[in-house]
Write a protein that binds this DNA or RNA. Structure first.
Length: 167
DNA sequence: GCCAACGTTGGC
DNA sequence: GCCAACGTTGGC
């Protein structure tokens, strides 16, 4: 039996973050290169976190809003969905006073860095490649911060990054 | 900085 | 339940 999950069982995601708020370097400097993915405040993204994202799933780290835009590396889900504690913290910018403490509205997962790409896959690179050009993140007006992606897209991203898909 | 695309809110 | 108004996201 292989130690790692069979590829067919692994799901692939793309998580977006504005690097000024949380970048791949923030993750790399975190203890055990692991951090909670907090601050998701969109119901569809929340539903993906709660119902879709599983322990061991593989994730592309996408930097949004501030150039250079693109996928800067990969990470793994090391803890499945649990309540996002920032929703109950009045000092957090993610504080949500309407979220019931006995039925938390917002969830998060923990992620661990797998690799930071030596060659980041910039948005323009994604646009040039047949497979990655069709990714959800490339769609105009796509705001979803937690997005599913396919195994083919995962593979293509690694080709563009000239990196091996480590797991 | 602009603005199109979205998502949410709230009056009705 | 509809939909206009508003606020936010995010590429350019």
């Amino acid at each position: 039996m292989p130690k790692s999950k069979a590829p067919a069982d692994v799901r692939y995601w793309l998580f977006k973050s504005e690097p000024s708020a949380f970048s791949i370097d923030h993750l790399a400097k975190s203890p055990k290169q692991t951090a909670p993915w907090d601050g998701v405040r969109n119901y569809q993204a929340r539903n993906y976190l709660r119902d879709g994202v599983q322990l061991g799933d593989l994730v592309c780290f996408y930097h949004s809003s501030e150039p250079p835009l693109g996928i800067f590396g990969t990470m793994r889900v090391v803890r499945a969905a649990y309540p996002d504690f920032t929703q109950f913290d009045p000092n957090s910018k993610y504080y949500d006073p309407k979220s019931p403490s006995d039925n938390p509205r917002w969830m998060m997962v923990d992620v661990q860095l797998i690799q930071k790409f030596d060659t980041p896959v910039l948005r323009e690179n994604l646009a040039e490649h047949k497979v990655t050009a069709g990714m959800l993140v490339m769609k105009k007006g796509s705001r979803l911060s937690i997005q599913p992606m396919t195994a083919a897209e995962w593979k293509a991203v690694h080709q563009l990054a000239k990196a091996k898909p480590l797991t």
